[in-house]
Design a protein around this nucleic acid. Structure first.
Lengths: 340, 340
DNA sequence: ATGTATAATGTTAGCGCAAACATATAGCGT
DNA sequence: ACGCTATATGTTTGCGCTAACATTATACAT
């Protein structure tokens, strides 16, 4: 009933202490679950806390402990499905672990934009950072210096690179997609890749190429897009302009696949009869595209959870030996691919 | 080998004061742009700040001023386009105004979930809140009480309701869509609405109905969806099962429109020749649907900006007389509607 | 009984900052 | 010269909390 976030005059430790007839330090001990508090005292304090609806003042605690119990997320401003999902799961996990989450969006991937975002979050004293975007033109150490020692976990990082990160094995995902097409008899397989300054995009691109070569096939034409439907649309037109016949396209995300399918139809071709398409992400809408899109699903919930857990470990002991956690993808079979 | 910067990056006001040969209070004055600091002193202090790379400690400042300079966002966990956009623009505006932003997602719209989110944000001492979701079963005052006096601005609120809010005039949007169809000779216009516990969804629904009546037409069949493509798909099938012929459908968001178009095609009908469709939101993908979707665009940037500005006003003077800011929509004409 | 470990509490001293108050200097009219 | 104001700076205090240390009570061995 009286559950208020901030009452007129906030209830402090001392108020609780007075009410419970103990010192404020004892209350602090109870609140922070220290040992050496008798059961009887603990109960009385807890009772007083409940009665007064005491809520610790984070600012004071932060000042005293040098910890804010806040995590920061840096994410790309444009509402792509992947980053949005990651934010969501990062937040949920963080909250479950007792952390709050603040975030800053960047509108481009320059080091200076990221720097501004970092500064902002840093000013607000986050204990750790999750970086959901890639950064253009930053040497490995540069970013760490910018963070000023605040633990940082990256999500879009190079597989095997020596920075703390949780990544989805994009090579494996792209291989899944490409091999799936190969297995269905496709020989001329083109590609629309994402912006190559995203590690994930580059990995998907490379793996598409390698998988094809490994199967003894010549990689088809490829064009880059910017993750958007428009980008995919334009890329597909560009690709089809080359007049190299392809029977299938691997496309780096579902939005671009949507645009590409539209472009394909505009050329008088059918999906999947003339050109098969595999996307990436499995956005909720993919099942309702025309035709429903066969695509690669990424495990975003696990990604969010693991990056937070890793980050919290890093906060607790910054010297934690670096490692990279890797997650895998699965192929979702729908109707945008046909057998040759 | 990498220096642990966190230890030595602890520059305080006093350090700056010593370096500049003034008292810490003078430095504080410079930082907070108080009057009564001589130009010469200000310059010296600024120089020292720059040299030492001083950054104010937010926790200490919060403790002293009782203000956190943090805004909180409560948003729905599922990544709908509208809420995501709002978050984005709220964050950008807040940051431009010197505020940080933290957020909490809720997985359902119950008062208790919202309460938990509020609690979490409140523990982290936000100065104000932007509520992007509606709340089920809360009386007007209930939420305010939960916030315990923290200023709150809502985004999904009833037009004309006496709560601080910035809203898009959904009635106007829905009227735009419906009238557009009427003007093109449609007589049997059905509807797929959103969850009616969202004020916006209800407003769109009511307005669809009223616009039709005002034009002397009988409202066609309507079914509810859950904002998702799947929801739209199922709703459309349900609607078409009724075997009441419709020539057009007003659909409460673009994702549902996507699903609905798929369902329409599955019945052997064409969009727009047999059934015209108007969506709502203008998501970036809408232009690449098949056919490209005629839809209602909402001004999310303005929504984000205005809600933050309103909130900041409210923080500065909580007694600010309530008002509601209203924004309007525009119709984006594409190819999912044809003239009868 | 005496000492010694262990458990349970209290006391003190900041964390870094800004509000409130105190003081000092310059400028100006009389 | 005097007071008076406007300007410019310094000093004290406390925001609410926790770390570190100090103290007391209790248990148990010697």
């Amino acid at each position: 009933m009286t559950m208020s976030i901030s009452d007129f005059r906030r209830v402090t430790l001392d108020d609780v202490a007075r009410a419970a007839g103990v010192s404020s330090q004892t209350v602090s001990r109870v609140v922070n679950e220290h040992p050496y508090v008798s059961e009887r005292t603990r109960r009385r304090v807890l009772e007083a806390i409940r009665k007064l609806d005491y809520r610790p003042n984070r600012a004071a605690r932060s000042l005293a402990t040098q910890q804010s119990h806040m995590l920061g997320i840096i994410t790309y401003g444009f509402p792509f499905y992947g980053p949005a999902q990651m934010m969501r799961y990062v937040e949920q996990t963080a909250r479950a672990r007792g952390y709050g989450v603040s975030f800053a969006t960047v509108n481009d991937l320059s080091l200076s934009e990221i720097g501004k975002a970092l500064q902002n979050l840093g000013d607000h004293a986050v204990d750790g950072l999750v970086l959901i975007t890639p950064v253009i033109g930053a040497t490995p150490g540069e970013l760490e210096r910018l963070c000023g020692g605040i633990p940082l976990v990256r999500i879009d990082a190079e597989l095997g690179s020596p920075v703390p990160s949780v990544v989805i094995d994009q090579r494996q995902g792209s291989r899944l997609a490409t091999q799936y097409l190969i297995d269905r008899g496709h020989q001329r397989i083109g590609e629309i890749h994402g912006p190559l300054n995203w590690f994930g995009a580059r990995a998907r691109h490379d793996s598409w190429n390698e998988t094809l070569l490994a199967a003894g096939l010549t990689p088809g034409p490829f064009v880059g897009g910017d993750w958007t439907a428009r980008g995919g649309y334009e890329a597909a037109h560009q690709l089809l302009d080359q007049r190299i016949s392809v029977t299938a396209l691997v496309i780096a995300n579902d939005q671009m696949a949507l645009g590409a399918m539209r472009a394909i139809r505009e050329r008088g071709l059918r999906v999947p009869e003339d050109v098969s398409v595999v996307g990436f992400d499995d956005i909720p809408e993919a099942a309702y595209f025309d035709p429903p899109l066969t695509t690669i699903r990424q495990n975003f919930p696990a990604l969010g959870e693991q990056s937070v857990d890793y980050l919290i470990t890093l906060i607790a002991s910054p010297e934690t030996f670096f490692h990279q956690r890797v997650l895998y993808t699965e192929l979702i079979e729908r109707q945008s691919v046909c057998t040759r």
